[in-house]
Nucleic acid binder design. Structure first.
Lengths: 186, 186
DNA sequence: AGCATATGCCAACACTTGTTGACTTTTCGA
DNA sequence: TCGAAAAGTCAACAAGTGTTGGCATATGCT
């Protein structure tokens, strides 16, 4: 087995980094605080990750793992998508890290775009949906707005809504953005 | 007339502060940069506003000016509300300042809550809407999510969508959150 | 005009940040 | 067992931050 000890502190740093970045955002999360949480020296962070930016990049790494919607009837696609996103959001805080940071950090915003536009749009294209970009964007507004209000701004009662109720409310909205004809009078 | 000169620099500082806070967020917007934009000395900022936090508070001061929905038929309430919000959002950047900052600053988040929950909920209560808090929260998720994607994260094509198309897409969503019966199977 | 006051600038402070290099301790194979 | 490599510690750096006090200048009233 390769270096076990170093791998453990490496992981400890990453875990502490995710927590701090998620709670405080990029600027206010300091290397010193992250190191203190991981109970190691700040210099170790530099040794293992090179710089704060690289540490953030490592902490914000993640797969979107979009669900396969091909077998789902169009009318339920919204609910399936929302449920997937909410559960994904709940299970680890990587997406929260990214969202908090994307607001003030351009490279994080770029990654957010890749995820929500760059992955959703082609998926809709393949499903032969018209105006895939607009629909993907609209879905992103509702999904990210929900995450913002629930996890970051902590709006009650949104923050304490059960997953089921959230899905029941949001699902039809997403479905409509996915299936409704363009309502513009053009 | 009272001190004219000082009022002018006061306003210049405030304008520069709004721009910087809106573009960079609270932490990355420095007093020195704001002062440079206003073409004055950093010490002037302190003289006039006391501290960075107080300057931010002044820059983020604003009225929501919710439209009067009493004369509007329920089915069009969403469109009226969305149009009002988008236009409000477009005309000055105070709300953008607040949104960018609320993500990492607790007092800004608190003000955001006051605006979107504390003002919307009672308005719905007066209109005898059931579950006013949930509906206000849902509307906030869609409205803020749209603002986030359009102004902060700059998702295309959401960022360049015309007001009319945005209203046509989002309006029915808001109307549904305002009027639809609770879809939860409880 | 003369002076008090408002307005502005400069230099410096105390502090925090990311980052670095030299040094010590631990680990572990030959 | 010995010694090189890995892992960790410590102190300090250069830069940038909000903030302050002292000093110069301009303004406007009598």
């Amino acid at each position: 087995m390769a270096e076990k000890k170093s791998d453990r502190t490496r992981a400890a740093i990453l875990a502490a980094a995710r927590e701090r970045f998620g709670a405080d955002g990029y600027e206010r999360a300091t290397i010193r605080a992250i190191a203190a949480d991981a109970a190691i020296d700040p210099a170790m962070v530099m040794r293992y990750y090179g710089s704060k930016e690289k540490l953030f990049a490592a902490a914000a790494e993640f797969d979107v793992r979009l669900p396969d919607l091909s077998g789902v009837p169009r009318e339920q696609a919204g609910e399936v998508l929302v449920r997937h996103l909410v559960e994904r959001w709940e299970e680890d805080d990587t997406l929260r890290v990214l969202l908090r940071t994307a607001v003030t950090n351009e490279s994080a915003a770029e990654r957010m775009r890749q995820v929500f536009i760059g992955q959703l749009t082609p998926a809709f294209e393949r499903a032969a949906v018209d105006q895939p970009a607009v629909r993907a964007g609209l879905i992103a507004t509702q999904a990210l707005g929900f995450a913002l209000c629930r996890y970051i701004l902590v709006f009650e009662p949104i923050a304490t809504l059960s997953t089921d109720r959230a899905v029941a409310w949001l699902g039809p909205t997403i479905t409509r953005y996915l299936t409704a004809p363009d309502p513009s009078h053009v």
